[in-house]
C-alpha cells in the first residue's frame, strides 16, 4: 500500500452538504454575535471615564500619565513610576522544547490564582499552558485577561523576545521589582488607524511575565495607564507564580 491509499482514505472524510452548511452558518452566527460587542465598546466607556478622570487630575494634581520626549511616564499607584521607552514588541513567540510537553487551557480558577485582581473572568479571557510531560510543571503560558495579553515563563526561560531599544531615564522599579517597559507605534492600517502597542517585562516568584496591551494610538495614555496598573497590581499582590499550576 502506498502513501496515496492513506491520502485517499482521508479524502473520503468530508461533511455532507447539509452539515457543511450548518457548520458554516454556526461559525458565522457566532462571529456576528461575538462582534455584537465590538472592541470599541469595551474601550469607549472606560476610556471616557479615564479621559474625564485624567482631565480632572490634570487640573487638580500631579498628572498620572505624561508623554514627553518620546517617553510615556505613568504613576500606577503606591508612589511608583513606570517609564515606557521605544521598543519592538514580540509576536507570539515560537518555542522549541527538548522534552515532551503537554498543553491545555487553564480554568477560570487557575487564571484567578495567577491574576487575582482580574475580577470576573469574561468570555474573551483565556489562558493556555505548556507543561513538561514528565513532571506536570507548567513551563510557559499565554493568554488574555481584560484585553491585556500575558506571556509567562519559568525563570530562566524567555516568555517573549521583546526588544527595548530606548533607554529609560531611570531603571523602573515597582515595589522593589525591576520592570522594563516600552512601546511602539505602527503605520496606519487599511482603516487609517495607527496601532500603539505597550509592553512591560519583569520577574516575580521565579516567573517571568511579559504583558502587552495595544489599541488605537489616540488611546495611548489610557493604554499605558491600564497596563501600568495591571503590572502594579500583579507585583503588589505577589501571587503570580507559574509553579502553582500543574497539568492534571
Amino acid at each position: 500500500m502506498k502513501d496515496e491509499t492513506i491520502r485517499e482514505s482521508w479524502d473520503r472524510i468530508r461533511p455532507d452538504e447539509a452539515a457543511d452548511a450548518r457548520m458554516h452558518g454556526a461559525v458565522m452566527e457566532y462571529q456576528h454575535s461575538h462582534r455584537g460587542r465590538p472592541a470599541v465598546w469595551k474601550w469607549a466607556v472606560p476610556a471616557l471615564c479615564l479621559l474625564l478622570a485624567a482631565a480632572i487630575l490634570l487640573f487638580t494634581s500631579t498628572p498620572r500619565v505624561q508623554f514627553k520626549e518620546n517617553r510615556y511616564t505613568v504613576k500606577p499607584g503606591g508612589g511608583n513610576t513606570l517609564e515606557y521607552v521605544t521598543g519592538e514588541p514580540a509576536g507570539s513567540a515560537k518555542f522549541a522544547y527538548d522534552y515532551e510537553v503537554n498543553d491545555r487551557e487553564l480554568t477560570a480558577e487557575e487564571m484567578h490564582t495567577l491574576f487575582p485582581s482580574s475580577g470576573q473572568i469574561s468570555e474573551g479571557d483565556y489562558f493556555g499552558g505548556v507543561f513538561k510531560a514528565e513532571t506536570g510543571e507548567m513551563v510557559r503560558a499565554e493568554g488574555r485577561i481584560d484585553g491585556i495579553m500575558f506571556f509567562l515563563a519559568q525563570a530562566g526561560l524567555a516568555p517573549s523576545d521583546c526588544i527595548i531599544t530606548g533607554t529609560p531615564e531611570r531603571e523602573n522599579v515597582i515595589g522593589g521589582v525591576p520592570v522594563k517597559a516600552g512601546y511602539a507605534i505602527f503605520a496606519a492600517n487599511s482603516k487609517g488607524v495607527r496601532n500603539a502597542v505597550f509592553f512591560a517585562e519583569f520577574e516575580i516568584n521565579r516567573t517571568a511575565v511579559y504583558a502587552v496591551l495595544s489599541g488605537d494610538e489616540k488611546d495611548s495614555l489610557q493604554l499605558c495607564q491600564k497596563l501600568s496598573e495591571a503590572v502594579y497590581e500583579i507585583i503588589r499582590r505577589n501571587t503570580t507564580d507559574i509553579s502553582t499550576i500543574k497539568y492534571e
Binding site: W10, I13, R14, P15, D20, M23, H24, V27, M28, Q31, H32, H34, R35, P38, A39, R144, G147, M149, N195, V197, V212, S214, G215
Partner: peptide
C-alpha cells in the same frame, strides 16, 4: 493585534481550513 477579525477574514479561514479540521476531528 487584538482587534476581532472581520466577517470576511473569519469566513476565509473557515473555508480554507474546515476540511482539515473536520478530518482531524473525525479521526478522534
Amino acid at each position: 493585534m487584538l482587534s476581532p477579525r472581520s466577517d470576511n477574514e473569519v469566513e476565509a479561514i473557515y473555508l480554507r481550513q474546515r476540511m482539515t479540521v473536520y478530518r482531524v476531528c473525525f479521526a478522534y
